[in-house]
């Protein structure tokens, strides 16, 4: 069936996402609208989105092991993370801007507001960015982030995770999420993970070890695919 390359996106299914008000994650209590979202028919504003060019990014932007290295390499487990950005119908989302950020191996963020006792790594910044290729593929190299405690309930620990921001081809596709690591026991109890209403959707955020793409005597590899909203088919000309 034909698809308008610039047509409407299928409406978002709210059951796939956390509710705004999720009291187990305490900060959401005062930061969630009380009114229902108002559903609008999409216009050019929602069907379009900013376009990015490869020459806006630097050659090391997708290499978190080297892009902040000062006098050596960062400490921690070397990993490669890769995957495909697709839409709901399995079509590749090309030229999507994928931005990632994370804590270092000690669970410490390079951010002026992070006061955690874990040590900063002088050779690790903790952010990277890339554009998907013609197949919707992206890849970057980094250090596996450590878990860290945070203020929610007492002794609450975030599982190791990497934050993702994805800008697709339509404003309606804009997505920020987090990627977790297969086998981490902290995933099951994390209140931020548990804002997601179904186990199936949580599994979608857990990167799997991709043994076939390990780099010998160098890095393990994780695979993480992302699905953005898709444009609907056009049954009839109007």
């Amino acid at each position: 069936m034909p698809t308008d390359p610039f047509g409407d996106f299928v409406q978002r299914d709210p059951s796939l996402h956390p509710p705004a008000y999720a009291p187990g994650y305490k900060t959401s209590v005062l930061r969630s609208p009380k009114n229902a979202l108002i559903s609008i028919q999409q216009t050019l504003t929602e069907r379009t989105a900013p376009q990015f060019r490869a020459d806006e990014l630097g050659p090391l932007d997708a290499d978190l092991i080297r892009n902040f290295a000062k006098d050596g390499m960062p400490i921690g487990e070397r990993i490669v993370v890769h995957g495909f950005v697709k839409d709901e119908f399995g079509r590749p989302v090309r030229n999507a801007l994928v931005e990632v950020w994370q804590a270092n191996a000690s669970g410490r963020y390079r951010h002026r507001k992070d006061q955690y006792i874990g040590a900063l790594d002088p050779n690790f910044g903790g952010c990277g960015r890339m554009l998907t290729d013609a197949d919707g593929h992206y890849a970057y190299r980094t250090i596996k982030p450590g878990p860290y405690p945070w203020r929610n309930r007492i002794n609450e620990w975030r599982p190791s995770h990497i934050h993702y921001s994805i800008c697709g081809d339509g404003w309606a596709q804009r997505l920020i999420t987090q990627m977790y690591f297969e086998g981490d026991p902290l995933i099951a109890t994390c209140p931020i993970v548990r804002t997601i209403p179904s186990d199936e959707q949580i599994r979608g955020l857990v990167a799997l070890q991709d043994v076939a793409n390990f780099i010998e005597m160098d890095s393990r590899c994780y695979r993480f695919d992302i699905v953005l909203r898709g444009r609907r088919a056009t049954w009839f000309e109007h």
Binding site: R12, D13, L16, H17, P18, Y25, S28, K86, D87, E88, F89, G90, W101, Q102, Y109, R110, H111, K113, D114, G125, G126, C127, H163, S165, L175, I176, T177, Q178, I192, V193, T195, I196, E200, Q201, I202, G204, L205, I226, V227, L228, R229
Partner: peptide, 15 residues
């Protein structure tokens, strides 16, 4: 395919 679930950007989204 189900759309990937959203998660908060967190306090350090600036990084």
């Amino acid at each position: 395919l189900p759309e990937t679930a959203s998660q908060t950007g967190g306090p350090y989204v600036h990084i």
